[in-house]
């Protein structure tokens, strides 16, 4: 007998958390390796950032890092919220607020990445 369970929000959110966690491992560690080992923190300045953000590939890489890390963290924060808040209506309101917060901050981050760095404003 075949059972079909329709995916609900909890299932989708959990699956996204797991997949994003797996993707975060190479994304985050390569980021750390590149910036701290290959380039070195003392070599990173506004010109370096500007060059990187002029490249569509690095913008996409950074955007995925932001998207997955933040979503992964927000999922964990929502679980902590469920530990502390037990009233269903309050849980629902806070979940919606968290979703909005995630979307807004991700949008701001994506915009910043897309705009790139402008060294003339710093120097």
């Amino acid at each position: 007998m075949a059972s079909q369970v329709k995916p609900n929000f909890e299932t989708t959110a959990w699956r996204f958390m797991r997949y994003s966690g797996i993707l975060l491992i190479p994304l985050a560690w390569f980021h750390v390796y590149l910036q701290d080992v290959i380039v070195g923190v003392h070599a990173i300045d506004i010109d370096y950032v500007a060059v990187r953000l002029a490249d569509a590939g690095w913008v996409t890489y950074n955007f995925l890092l932001l998207l997955f890390a933040f979503a992964h963290g927000m999922y964990g924060l929502r679980q902590v919220m469920f530990d502390l808040v037990h009233k269903p209506s309050t849980r629902r309101i806070l979940s919606i607020l968290m979703l909005i917060f995630w979307l807004v901050v991700s949008a701001i981050g994506a915009t910043a990445l897309a705009m790139g760095a402008r060294p003339e404003l710093v120097q």
Partner: peptide, 21 residues
């Protein structure tokens, strides 16, 4: 058993299996 679907739907809800850490 023929009610795996029903049980899994209950466990897919917010108080179900995905609360396990």
């Amino acid at each position: 058993d023929q009610a795996a679907n029903k049980r899994l739907e209950i466990l897919a809800d917010h108080g179900g299996a995905f609360r396990c850490r």
